[in-house]
Simulated scan of single mutants.
Amino acid sequence: MSQATKRKHVVKEVLGDFVTPTESQQIVRVLGSPGNNLHEAVTAQGERFLISMPTKFRKNIWIKRGDFVIVDPIEEGEKVKGEISFILYKDHIRNLQTTGAWPEAFSEDSALEERRAGQQQEERAEEGEGLTDSEDDDSDLFVNTNRINYHYSESEEETDEDEDEEESGENIMGGKA
């Protein structure tokens, strides 16, 4: 089977199927990735351990911090205590919540995250409404730190030094004495 065909089947399986965890499996939240296809995870009870990404998901499916996965336990593992069997997306989480298979501890966390995201969007909208067209805010523009910053100040009045230079220049050139 070619790599493209394999990727197509793996993605179709992950996105299409709705899976409920068995008695031995558990739902965990991904906390981070120390490397080598290992991920740090936490259970609903607060237990932290490492989980491994199976070869069928590697370079095909990506997970990030905060994602939820279903894990098969590995009894002989000391540090790595589980292997990812299924990656949960929003549709899968909603399905598990309606069936009652979703852990209550994660329901509270996900509700808090949704509230925070909503508050951040409201704050951004309020900031956007506060700005008017007459205000020019260049603070978000890119500044090239490899160039010298020149600050030009424009003034209509000539300074005393400019007047002195003009008078001395006229005397040297043979102008007015």
Results as ranks from 00 to 15, higher is better:
Asp91Cys: 04
Glu40Arg: 15
Ile51Arg: 03
Val30Asn: 02
Glu47Asp: 14
Gly66Tyr: 05
Lys56Asn: 09
Thr20Asp: 02
Lys59Arg: 09
Ser85Asn: 12
Gly35Trp: 09
Val42His: 07
Val30Pro: 05
Ala101Cys: 05
Arg124Gln: 10
Thr55Leu: 11
Glu108Gly: 10
Glu126Val: 03
Gly66Glu: 10
Arg58Gln: 15
Arg65Glu: 15
Gln45Asn: 14
Arg7His: 12
Ile84Ser: 00
Lys79Cys: 06
Lys79Glu: 13
Pro21Gln: 12
Leu38Phe: 04
Asn60Ala: 01
Met53Arg: 12
Phe106Gln: 01
Lys12Met: 03
Glu23Lys: 00
Leu96Asn: 01
Pro103Trp: 06
Glu75His: 03
Asp136Arg: 12
His39Tyr: 15
Gln121Met: 05
Asp136Pro: 00
Glu104Phe: 09
Ile93Lys: 02
Glu108Tyr: 07
Ala44Val: 13
Glu83Ala: 13
Val42Ile: 15
Gly77Ser: 11
Glu129Pro: 00
Glu122Arg: 12
Arg7Leu: 06
Arg65Thr: 15
Phe106Asn: 02
Val14Glu: 06
Glu127Ala: 15
Lys8Gln: 12
Glu135Gln: 13
Phe68Gly: 02
Arg65Lys: 15
Pro34Arg: 05
Gln97Arg: 13
Lys59Gly: 02
Gln25Cys: 00
Pro21Leu: 02
Ala44Cys: 08
Thr55Asn: 09
Lys81Thr: 05
Ile61Gly: 03
Trp62Asp: 06
Glu78Tyr: 08
Glu78Arg: 12
His92Met: 04
Gly35Cys: 06
Gly82Tyr: 03
Glu23Cys: 00
Gln97Thr: 09
Leu112Glu: 15
Phe86Asp: 00
Gly46Thr: 12
Glu13Phe: 13
Val19Lys: 01
Glu75Asp: 12
Arg116Asp: 10
Val10Asp: 03
Ile87Leu: 03
Trp102His: 07
Lys90Glu: 11
Gly130Gln: 08
His92Asn: 09
Lys90Met: 03
Ser107His: 08
Glu83Ile: 10
Ser52Pro: 00
Lys8Ala: 12
Arg124Thr: 08
Thr132Ala: 06
Ser107Phe: 02
Glu78Ile: 09
Glu104Ile: 11
His92Lys: 06
Arg58Ile: 06
Val69Phe: 00
His39Lys: 11
Ala105Gln: 14
Glu47Gln: 14
Ala101Gly: 02
Asp137Glu: 12
Trp102Lys: 03
Gln45Phe: 05
Glu113Thr: 09
Lys90Thr: 10
Leu96Val: 01
Gly118Phe: 04
Leu96Tyr: 03
Ala117His: 04
Ala111Asn: 12
Phe49Met: 10
Gly35Pro: 04
Gly100Asp: 11
Arg29Gln: 15
Leu31Ser: 04
Gln26Ser: 09
Ile63Leu: 08
Asn37Phe: 14
Ser134Ile: 15
Glu40Ala: 07
Glu135Arg: 14
